[in-house]
Amino acid sequence: MMQNVIIGQYIPADSLIHRMDPRSKLIAVFIFVLIVFLANNWLSYSLLGIFTIGTAAISKVPFSYLLKGLKPIFWIVLFTVILHLFMTKEGPVLLDLGWAKIHEGGLVKGVFIAFRLFFLILLTSLLTLTTTPIDITDGLENLLAPLKRLKFPVHEFALMMSISLRFIPTLMQETEKIMKAQSARGAEFSSGPIQQRIKAFVPLLIPLFISAFKRAEDLALAMEARGYRGGEGRTKLRLLQWKMRDSFCLFSMGVLIVALVIFRS
């Protein structure tokens, strides 16, 4: 079970994208999500395409992993494309089916939307594929720090995320153990009618919940015993380092914005 669970989806590799500061990656992805909507003609979409595929190539993440990330949205893309195909009534009619007409504008819009979703998913999954969850947490904590003034519990939020990340494998191991124990007593998790399988999960979840609460209590005590008293005045071992490449990353995002504004019609 442990083998086929990847926490987050991080693929270790040594690439420029991997080495970048999580903050610059987060900012870049955020900007990208916004400017994708600037593209509105073939030229601007090609530009986005070159940018996305170029980034993917630099990241050295195997192509198969990127495809895996795209798989879940395939049906959504198909659905939106079909919707646009029939609903948009612009330009000359390409095909007359009698009960519906497909316009050229519909086809173009459908394809554009498909590409837009495709680019968005590709770039956001590149973020999680090249950054460990804990780095993303650190980056978020740092970027959201100004919100502390608005009383938003940024530190607590980040701590909560990192503790969850820490305990996911532990809870997995525990689930596996309980599952084996229940299987040994005749519970069926992987075969039989669906209703019974769902029922079999109840005696799995209850001990898991009870132990999770016990863990939470123990952990809180251990943290207090080690002098935890909130984020105020705390120092950090994990270091975020903003390098030349990070500034360059943001610079290229700027260039991309300008280019998009020029090329869009």
Binding site: I163, L165, R166, D218, L219, M223, R226, G227, Y228
Partner: peptide, 19 residues
């Protein structure tokens, strides 16, 4: 398990120091 706070060994040893 229930007193291991950090995601890695060094993060855990650092926890009290950070506090």
């Amino acid at each position: 398990d229930n007193q291991f706070v950090g995601t890695t060994v060094k993060d855990d040893v650092a926890f009290g120091l950070e506090n």
